[in-house]
Design a protein around this nucleic acid. Structure first.
Lengths: 167, 167
DNA sequence: TTTATTTTTCAGAACTTATTGAAAATATGG
DNA sequence: CCATATTTTCAATAAGTTCTGAAAAATAAA
């Protein structure tokens, strides 16, 4: 298989994986492109390679920088900005987990804890409280695990995961 | 807080969490509704409660049954079908993990392994292979963990997770 | 300054996905 | 079998999301 073709396919695959995980397609594609490129790329390069508009490119590059997955790289003698993706996959996973925890899990836990404050004592209300408490429990456990993962270095997570897998 | 209001809010919250995790909003809302209801509901009930069309209700109930999150319940003397959600949260999480592994992770791993077959030896190609291999590694590790989780009983996962969290 | 280059913004267009509702298919009871 | 209740399907439509492109803002050189 030819390199260019493989790159192309990789970008598509990563793009569609991203979109099923709540990260928009272009954002993942840009990320993929920067991952496989061994030198930093400019906005122009990205527009060119992915055939997307300037606005789209700009927006999604910003988002990747926000998420901490990509950083600006100044190239001497060039006025344009260049971008480069961090190559450490675990670091990348940590950052994605962090963003999503913040954006999605946190508000849900907040809400669930409020919902337990139902001041009724019918059988129905009891049932409701049980369900909500179970979910809160579950969500909090996920949250703690992510927290630890986020704060950890790669090594910690690697070890824990191996422990999980091996026995 | 009133029970009805709390239920309402719970359904909304679960709905939006679902949609950020790639499960469509109505599907999660129906799931939430069935979770908090202490008796099985008919399609009519669901349409009524969530103010959705028959077609929409039917489609998403089917999907929930496919995913193994909801089961049909026959009520004696009634001709209609009634539906009930499994109340075990871990079981639920297992089933969601299973479906998504099957639908999303599996094809990606397949593709990544094919992409390593680049028959070039430039520096660029080497770099590409490194990135793809790292990702494959990572994805496979996630996959193994999920597999084990999926095959496990609740107890196993609970213990492992506690081990992760506690120390 | 002024001019040239680059980045950002944002209203509308294009695209994608979810929903409706009515018609067709299927199941149930007499 | 017929009549009726219930479920399923699916084309049309609506809602939601992402993308474009041109104009405005920002930045840097002359």
């Amino acid at each position: 298989m030819k390199l260019d073709q493989a790159k192309e396919e990789f970008i598509q695959t990563w793009g569609s994986l991203g979109s099923s995980w709540g990260i928009n397609r272009t954002m993942s594609q840009i990320h993929a492109l920067l991952l496989v490129s061994n030198k930093p790329l400019s906005t122009e390069d990205i527009m060119e390679e992915l055939q997307i508009s300037r606005g789209n490119a700009n927006m999604n590059i910003r988002a990747l920088i926000d998420w901490g997955l990509v950083r600006k790289q100044l190239v001497p003698g060039e006025r344009k900005e260049f971008f480069q993706a961090g190559k450490d996959i675990w670091e990348m996973a940590r950052k994605i987990a962090e963003e999503r925890r913040k954006r999605e899990l946190e508000p849900v836990i907040q809400t669930l804890s409020e919902l337990k404050q139902v001041d009724e004592n019918t059988e129905e209300a009891d049932h409701f409280k049980t369900v909500v408490t179970d979910l809160e429990d579950f969500t909090q456990r996920i949250q703690s695990t992510l927290d630890r993962f986020i704060r950890s270095d790669r090594n910690w997570f690697y070890k824990s995961l191996m422990a999980l897998i091996k026995k």
